[in-house]
């Protein structure tokens, strides 16, 4: 299933790029290289990748800007590479549209695992549930469609999977750890901020009033829940 994945690696350090390319090609994947954000935009337009790997520290337009730029036209999963896990960079990158992050130096095996998790197909919903209705919000998992107030909503792949996970048990409470496991494939030590930022992004799209969410609601001390 993961054979033939096309990865666009955006990294200004030529040697890192070359070694990551070698390691990912060992997985049987195709790797496009870009040394700058400008190159990346051009290459992505020519050969749309399945996953984009972006180093935040880039000459010219930086990783955040590149993230936002790609997000304008694509729902492709984006993994960003940051220097540190505890800076604002992580949250800023996630808010710019990244789906996951890694800190340098990371093992290519870890990267491959992250990419695989992000590319997992949406779990098929129970038969007879081809359409899920939550008030004015409609989810059609098989077609990858979400409709709010009769208008289709554009979600990234990860946002869509997050929403489908929540929709699998309407009204049920999902802890951060559970969502990290189901959507990102992380264990206990996953970063809860991934969930928080994605929930925030999701609310911007599926809530009529994102400041007062009625569908994706917080359950104090426990996690999140999807309701009508």
């Amino acid at each position: 299933m993961t054979v033939g994945i096309r990865v666009l690696a955006v990294e200004d350090d030529e040697r890192i790029r070359a070694s990551v390319k070698l390691a990912l090609e060992d997985e049987g994947w195709i790797v496009d290289e870009a040394a700058s954000g400008e190159d990346a935009i051009a290459i992505f337009a020519k050969h749309p990748a399945d996953v984009v790997l972006i180093d935040i520290m880039l000459p010219g337009i930086d990783g955040f800007e590149l993230c936002r730029n790609i997000r304008k036209s694509s729902d492709v999963p984006i993994v960003m590479v940051t220097a540190r896990a505890d800076t604002h960079d992580v949250v800023a990158g996630l808010e710019a549209g990244a789906d996951d992050y890694l800190t340098k130096p990371f093992a290519p095996k870890e990267l491959a695992a992250r990419i695989r998790a992000l590319l997992r197909r949406v779990r098929p919903s129970k038969p007879g549930h081809s359409k899920l209705l939550f008030g004015n919000l409609e989810i059609i998992p098989d077609e990858g469609k979400v409709i709010l107030n009769n208008a289709e909503v554009e979600l990234t792949k990860t946002e869509f999977r997050l929403l489908c996970e929540l929709a699998n048990d309407p009204g049920g409470v999902f802890s951060r750890e559970l969502l990290l496991d189901k959507v990102w494939g992380y264990g206990y030590f996953g970063d809860g901020r991934l969930v928080d930022v994605h929930i925030r992004r999701l609310r911007m799209k599926v809530e009529t009033d994102p400041a007062n969410p009625t569908h994706v609601v917080t359950v104090r001390g426990l996690g999140y829940r999807l309701q009508s």
Binding site: D13, S19, A23, D26, P105, A107, K109
Partner: peptide
């Protein structure tokens, strides 16, 4: 330490290719 990270990254990735 920061400067060491980039070569380390290359080293780790290359070693992994060799290991496989």
């Amino acid at each position: 330490s920061h400067e060491l990270r980039s070569p380390l990254m290359t080293l780790a990735a290359s070693v992994q290719v060799l290991e496989s």
